[in-house]
Amino acid sequence: MHDNDTESRPVEALRVWISTQSDTTVVTVVGEVDYLTAPRLAHALDTALLLGARRLRVDFGGVSFCDCCGLNVLLEMRGRCLDAGVGFWLSTPLASEVERLLDLTETGPVLLSEPATTQGPRV
């Protein structure tokens, strides 16, 4: 196999960190979220939830691209947070590419709505 037989592209590093602001755990994400980097995002969100987050805000302002793998991570975590009684939302502003993904998939209303309060786990 020759080097030209497979197309390669540089992978933009995804940076993710967790912080606390008042009663909210913030997961800040910078870079591109795709099939290669979505597991890193999932791990950070899992960690935030395991550390006892009661409100989990995902700062996606530094994300320049997100594909369906990243969207699936966000939707799965939102469901887990709902089950655990943890508020979950994406903060704005978002890159136009991310806004377009949310518009096309009609997931913006569920991911961008900041919960008023947390209610405890669903039973």
Score class of each variant (00 low, 15 high):
H2G: 12
N4V: 03
N4Q: 03
T6H: 05
T6K: 12
E7R: 03
E7P: 03
S8C: 11
S8M: 08
P10W: 10
P10K: 09
V11G: 07
E12G: 09
A13C: 01
A13Y: 09
L14D: 00
L14K: 04
V16K: 04
W17C: 06
I18D: 00
T20M: 02
Q21N: 10
S22D: 07
S22N: 06
D23G: 08
T24R: 07
T24L: 00
T24P: 10
T25C: 15
T25V: 12
T25L: 06
V26I: 07
V27S: 13
V27R: 09
T28P: 01
T28N: 05
V29G: 03
V33P: 11
D34Q: 06
D34K: 03
Y35F: 15
Y35R: 15
L36Q: 13
A38V: 00
A38Q: 01
P39F: 14
R40A: 10
L41H: 11
A42T: 03
A42R: 10
A44Q: 00
T47V: 02
A48G: 04
A48L: 01
L51T: 07
L51W: 02
G52Q: 11
G52K: 09
G52A: 13
A53S: 15
R55K: 10
L56S: 09
R57E: 12
F60L: 15
F60Q: 12
G61S: 14
G61C: 12
G61Q: 12
G62D: 10
F65I: 04
D67G: 08
D67N: 07
C68F: 14
C68P: 12
G70P: 05
G70A: 01
G70F: 01
L71C: 02
V73A: 02
L74F: 10
L75C: 12
L75D: 02
M77T: 09
M77Y: 04
R80T: 13
L82D: 07
L82S: 06
L82V: 15
L82E: 06
D83R: 14
A84P: 06
A84R: 15
G85P: 09
V86D: 02
V86W: 01
G87V: 04
F88G: 02
W89K: 05
L90M: 11
L90Q: 08
T92L: 12
P93Q: 14
L94W: 09
L94Y: 11
S96P: 13
E97A: 14
R100D: 03
R100E: 02
L101Y: 01
L102T: 06
D103G: 08
L104H: 01
E106S: 08
P109M: 05
V110E: 11
V110N: 08
V110C: 07
V110Q: 13
L111Q: 00
L112W: 01
S113V: 12
E114N: 13
A116D: 10
T117N: 04
T118F: 02
Q119T: 11
Q119F: 04
G120A: 06
P121K: 01
P121M: 04
R122C: 07
